[in-house]
């Protein structure tokens, strides 16, 4: 097997990897803030608001991401009357699906972080005169994010691998090019290359989160 061949099949796969990374970055950038917002809603004293937040999380976590992606790409346009306005670029639709789905997971991670903060922190802040919002912003959130960091790291690695679901909605990403090469050339090498690219991405991600965890060790 020539080096030329390896280069020739790797180049389109790297092109595909760009899509993978782009999806990953967009999904992370939007789903973390959205997830955090959903966490805040879940803490609301208003039963309706916290109920909506809980139902959202339940539905998003209780159904397959693939089903959600198929629904957004192919289901929405079939809705009578409004369907024709809901046709999106496949990639955009996929981004939307990932954001909505991952926001639910991130919101649960943040909620867990919030619940694990000792009530003594709130009491200490109260006797020092902090208002509720000052307590939240200065005392609670920094601790919540710190506690959530390892779980966020885990979830991000899952996300990188989940981008492979783009294959199912026919957005040409890494796996698409691998599969094409496998079919065309009747060799399994492209699968290995795809695997290595994913491993490299995971490696970089792990290193970044390690660094973050170290930086915010508070020791």
């Amino acid at each position: 097997m020539s080096t030329d061949y390896l280069v020739n099949i790797t180049i389109p796969m790297l092109e595909g990897a760009k899509i993978t990374i782009l999806l990953f970055l967009i999904a992370i950038a939007f789903s973390i803030p959205l997830g955090f917002f959903i966490t805040l809603l879940s803490q609301s004293n208003n039963k309706v608001i916290s109920g909506i937040s809980k139902s959202y999380v339940y539905v998003m976590r209780g159904t397959p991401l693939l089903l959600q992606l198929l629904f957004i790409c192919f289901g929405l346009p079939m809705i009578p009357v409004i369907g024709e306005y809901l046709v999106m670029d496949r990639f955009v639709a996929a981004c939307l699906g990932f954001i909505l789905n991952y926001a639910a997971y991130f919101s649960e991670i943040f909620r867990g972080g919030l619940l694990s903060i000792d009530k003594g922190q709130y009491e200490a802040a109260q006797v020092l005169g902090f208002s509720r919002s000052q307590t939240t912003i200065k005392i609670i959130l920094p601790q919540m994010f710190r506690i959530a960091l390892p779980a966020v790291s885990n979830e991000s690695i899952t996300l990188i691998k989940d981008t492979a679901l783009l294959y199912a909605v026919a957005v040409p990403e890494l796996l698409h090019f691998a599969q094409t090469a496998v079919n065309r050339d009747f060799t399994i090498v492209p699968f290995f290359i795809a695997g290595i690219i994913f491993l490299l991405l995971t490696l970089v991600l792990t290193a970044i989160f390690r660094w973050l965890e170290h930086k915010f060790k508070f020791e």
Partner: peptide, 20 residues
């Protein structure tokens, strides 16, 4: 009930700075 994400100095200074 110290604030674990703040240094000793920051623990002392945060309330006067933020609250007052």
């Amino acid at each position: 009930n110290l604030f674990p994400h703040l240094t000793v100095k920051e623990n002392l200074e945060i309330a006067p700075l933020v609250v007052q």
